[in-house]
Design a protein around this nucleic acid. Structure first.
Lengths: 219, 219
DNA sequence: TGTTGTGAATCTCTTCACAGCT
DNA sequence: AGCTGTGAAGAGATTCACAACA
């Protein structure tokens, strides 16, 4: 779906199309590979990744194909190399920074969840409009008034926005984010944002998830 | 994908296959229809739903087909009827109850998010192992020690579990949930649970979402 | 005229199956 | 013997396009 430039095995560059689903699975693969790497494992085969990720082995091999030839026939994949290759795709060559807007329960939970975990992808600033939530450090993150968004985004080179405000405020805050130059938004508010241009929106609607489980788990 | 029994327009019962994606969209459609209904709107056409939900109009009509004939050619859909029909599919005929395990930041955020919103789908009990988090009421929800899970699940007829514990504890807690008789789990821990049987798992991995936005929003 | 309901076509994603490498 | 990489087949989801309807 989306074209990506990847180094090939000869030091050149390949252009590959990668689908959203594959990107999601890359994120999953990497996360389950990292602990194995720390435990000293060096090689793994597609079947084992498949079992850990709860997908098919052919699916895993198909996904890993778009990383360029990283496996060795008959011997599986080198975990270290796999993690690096996935990193090349997911992380790109420059670290990215995110701004979180909305310091309610959910916003704090997310700060807490991501804090200090990944150096390539950190939430470096948070915003709200309530005075008791700004001009201080919450869970290791500096908090500003929403009006400071354009300034801080520009100064820190922030490219991502995390939207954890109420439904009513979401549309307005999204617009402000985009005006400030943000390129992608992770939206927790239960509405579909109407966006002007080529900004990427990922909707994470917890209610939809809960209703979906409820449906499939009916007695 | 999954067969559902629905009332047809003659008072009989139809058996229709509904895919996961359609279920997710039903949840979205209903949420955007409810405010319109409260504003006194009575009719809506597929194009308008499509615009609000950010999907195609043909997609909307295709989805609504599985509700049985609810639209009227040339005049759109009756919103009231639509909401009821979607409710028939999503809510079934009995209310469902959920138990949340893990009263950290994320657990509290979720309690806060769902509290009192939907009568058909409520979190009626929460669990943890830390003594400062149990035997009290947090955000309107009664909190118990994890050991009380089987008892409370049985007494209250709980069918759903929400998993907001650490990665290390997730597998064990999921097993306990299933042993207690829970039929579906909404898992926020960033691992793929290995589940014995026909329990439905929905994984909501925030890191995967953030990494996905980061990928598609690269400068 | 404007809109639904739907067969058919298209597009996308997943799985199969096996040649080729180690 | 065991595993990767991949063309081809299969399954699934989306979109097109239009007849039937109000």
């Amino acid at each position: 779906m989306t074209p990506v430039h990847l180094p090939d095995r000869f030091g050149g560059v390949r252009l590959v199309a990668v689908s959203t689903n594959t990107i999601r699975r890359f994120s999953i693969y990497r996360r389950l590979l990292l602990p194995l790497l720390r435990d000293g494992r060096t090689r793994i085969c597609s079947h084992e990744i498949a079992a850990l990720a709860a997908v098919g082995a052919a699916q895993v091999r198909r996904d890993l194909m778009s990383l360029g030839s990283t496996g060795a026939s008959g011997r599986g994949y080198d975990i270290q190399r796999l993690v690096e290759s996935i990193g090349t795709v997911l992380d790109g060559d420059t670290p990215q920074r995110a701004a979180l807007v909305g310091l309610g329960h959910l916003g704090r939970a997310i700060l807490n969840h991501f804090n200090g975990r990944r150096p390539n992808l950190a939430i470096t600033a948070a915003f709200d409009v309530r005075t008791d939530r700004i001009d201080r450090v919450i869970l290791g993150c500096r908090c500003y008034h929403l009006d400071a968004l354009p300034k801080v985004v520009a100064e820190e080179g922030i490219t991502l926005g995390i939207l954890t405000v109420t439904t009513g405020a979401a549309e307005d805050v999204a617009t402000r984010m985009i005006e400030a130059g943000i390129l992608g938004i992770l939206n927790f508010a239960p509405i579909r944002l109407r966006i002007p241009r080529q900004v990427h929106i990922e909707n994470l609607d917890m209610t939809t998830f809960l209703e979906t489980v409820a449906f499939f788990a009916r007695p």
